[in-house]
């Protein structure tokens, strides 16, 4: 082949490959577009007022969550009556990837509107979903929680590696005091206490904060391949390792038990967890009736019921199960992340 032939061959190949590439992008764009069209199946979704306190939400207990149902309100925060979770949804117009609320404070982790993909922020919301504060995030959102009083907000993001030589992820967990604005940008700056002694390691990662009160929390600390349950003290900036094999703890409303996901030996590597509840007084644990692997930080709908998300037709469905290990899992609603209860 002379140079000219080679150039022609390359040009033809580039045209063909370019066609395939452009075609795949257009097809993906079309699919993305279709997800925004009104769907005929699933709960009805209409725009309306969503509030995070009971007074404003027509005095009935409601559940607020991210609806993943396709259509014009996809990924928006919606609310449903707690008595009819699978019923019609009221959509707020606010899109969040992760959401939690307590005592009229909301935490919404979202993609920064209009920015390049991969830019995220945390937005602290008041009870009318008005943004009170924006904090940029360094990675993709995964967990968020608000303290029972509504004062403290915590979140965890995945900081993705720059390389796929290492599918090593790290997490960054931050705590914001919404009253005085103090921002603990990374729990990794806290002192770690293990067996009564300081513990140091460069590979420490935190995720899944759940608040006991405005000064104390539980969370997961991972180091050297093990995920530990820790109890944190915000004023003293310490975390104390309590026990191993606890991920994504979630404290019950009465503060006596933690729902968490536990790695159970013998399960597939990509579905390794079971939901458990740990009694903090006796430090005894028991499995819940859900037999599928749930990769979620569970929420407590009340002192006896735990909700969590499992993969479904529209990303995830929300499920619930009794917290005492009895009963059966029950699908709370389709196309939803685990809801927060507005009591």
């Amino acid at each position: 082949m002379n140079v000219r032939t080679r150039i022609v061959v390359l040009l033809v190949a580039v045209l063909v490959l370019g066609g395939v590439a452009v075609g795949s992008v257009l097809r993906a764009a079309d699919q993305a577009h279709r997800k925004d069209q009104q769907q005929t199946t699933g709960p009805q979704v209409t725009a309306g007022q969503v509030a995070l306190d009971r007074a404003a939400s027509a005095r009935q207990a409601r559940l607020v969550f991210r609806s993943t149902l396709w259509g014009p309100h996809r990924d928006e925060l919606v609310s449903v009556p707690a008595s009819d979770p699978a019923g019609p949804r009221t959509a707020s117009g606010l899109r969040c990837l992760r959401f939690y609320t307590a005592a009229g404070t909301g935490s919404c982790l979202r993609a920064v509107p209009g920015a390049m993909a991969g830019h995220y922020e945390a937005v602290v919301l008041d009870s009318r979903l008005r943004a009170r504060r924006h904090v940029p995030l360094v990675g993709s959102p995964t967990r968020t929680r608000v303290s029972p009083s509504g004062r403290m907000v915590a979140w965890t993001v995945f900081v993705s590696g720059e390389s796929y030589t290492g599918l090593n992820f790290s997490t960054r967990t931050s705590i914001l005091d919404t009253r005085n604005g103090r921002f603990h940008s990374s729990l990794e700056s806290y002192r770690v206490i293990k067996d009564g002694r300081p513990y140091r390691s460069p590979d420490i990662n935190f995720w899944g904060v759940t608040f006991a009160d405005d000064g104390h929390f539980y969370a997961t600390l991972a180091t050297r391949g093990t995920a530990y349950l820790v109890r944190g003290d915000i004023a003293r900036r310490t975390v104390t390792i309590l026990r191993g094999n606890v991920e994504c703890p979630s404290l019950s409303p009465d503060g006596t038990r933690l729902a968490f996901k536990k790695r159970v030996p013998g399960l597939p590597v990509d579905a390794p967890w079971r939901l458990y509840v740990l009694d903090l007084h006796s430090m005894r644990e028991h499995p819940l009736a859900e037999r599928r692997s749930a990769d979620d930080q569970a929420v407590w709908l009340d002192d006896h019921t735990v909700a969590y998300a499992l993969p479904g037709d529209f990303e995830t469905d929300a499920w619930s199960v009794p917290s005492d290990g009895t009963g059966h899992p029950h699908r709370l609603m389709p196309a939803a992340q685990a809801p927060s209860a507005v009591r």
Binding site: F158, V159, G161, E162, S163, T165, G166, N168, F169, S170, T171, P202, D203, N205, W207, T220, A222, G225, A227, E247
Partner: peptide
């Protein structure tokens, strides 16, 4: 290239 450095043991997370 800096981006493909052997990954350190720093990170693991869930």
């Amino acid at each position: 290239a800096p981006t493909t450095d052997p990954a350190p043991t720093t990170e693991a997370a869930g």
